[in-house]
Amino acid sequence: MSTQKSARRQAGTVEENALRLDTEKAEQIIDALNTDLADAYVLYHQLHKHHWNVSGAEFLELHRFLQEVYEDVEDAADAIAERLQALGGVPHASMTTLAENATVEPEDEDVYDIRTSLENDLEMMGDIIESTREHIQLAEGLGDYATGEMLRGQLETLEEHTHHVEHYLEDDTLVLESATN
C-alpha cells in the first residue's frame, strides 16, 4: 500500500481542461462517461464469466466470440476513461464505485446454460446501446463532438456484437437435441 498522505486528484472533481470545453459542460459529460465506464465493466465481467463457463457442441466458437466481445468492451472502457481524464475528470476505478454507478444489473454468480447467458448479455447490451445513444446526444449538444464521435464508434461495434448474439439465439441450429430431452 502506498504511503502517500494526500491525493493528487480527488475523485468526483473536475479540473479545467486543455480541450477548452467549459467546466460546467465537461462535468455533465464526465458524469455520463463515468456511467458508461461503470456499465462497460459490468458487461465486461459478465461476458468474461460466460466465456469461462460456456460448454457444449458450440463451445469453441462461442468461447472465441465472447472473448472478442469482452476485449472490445475493455478497449472501449479504456478509451472512455482516457477521454474522461482529458476532459478534466477522474475516472471511476474501484470495483465498489463502478458497481454503485452502473445502471445495468449483472447476472448473479450461478452458471446458466449458454442460451440464458446470451439472453442476459443481449438485454444488458441493449440497455447500454440506449444509454450510449443518449450520451452521444448529450455530448454533441454541449459541443463535445469528439466524445460523440468516440461513443459513436463504440456504439457501432457494440451494435454489431449485439446483432451477432441475436443470431446465436435463433431457433435454427445444426446441433441435434439429445435423445434424453
Rank of each mutant, 00 (worst) to 15 (best):
A32V: 02
L60S: 08
R115K: 11
T157K: 06
A93G: 13
E166T: 13
P91A: 12
M150E: 05
L19I: 04
G143R: 02
E105W: 08
Y168G: 04
E68I: 12
D22H: 11
L142P: 03
Y112I: 14
G88F: 01
S178G: 15
S178R: 14
L37H: 06
H135R: 13
E109Q: 12
T35W: 02
H51E: 06
T180A: 15
L151Y: 03
E74W: 04
V90L: 05
R9K: 12
Q4H: 10
Y70C: 07
T13A: 05
D108C: 08
V90S: 13
T97S: 11
G88Y: 04
R133Q: 09
A26T: 03
E82D: 07
V73N: 01
Y112W: 09
A79I: 10
T132W: 02
D75M: 11
E58V: 13
D75K: 14
V14F: 08
G126H: 05
K49A: 04
H48I: 12
V42Y: 09
D171E: 15
Y41P: 05
I128N: 00
M1H: 14
V14R: 05
E130I: 09
D110Y: 10
G153L: 12
R20W: 08
Y168T: 07
H48C: 03
I80L: 06
I114G: 05
A79C: 06
D108H: 09
E105L: 15
A18Q: 11
A79D: 12
E156D: 14
E119D: 14
K25T: 06
L87G: 00
E159D: 07
T132M: 06
K49C: 00
S94Y: 04
D127L: 15
L66V: 03
R8Q: 07
F65C: 09
E74L: 11
Q10D: 06
L47H: 07
A40R: 01
E159M: 13
Q85F: 15
I30V: 05
E82Y: 07
T13I: 08
Q46L: 06
M124L: 10
D22S: 05
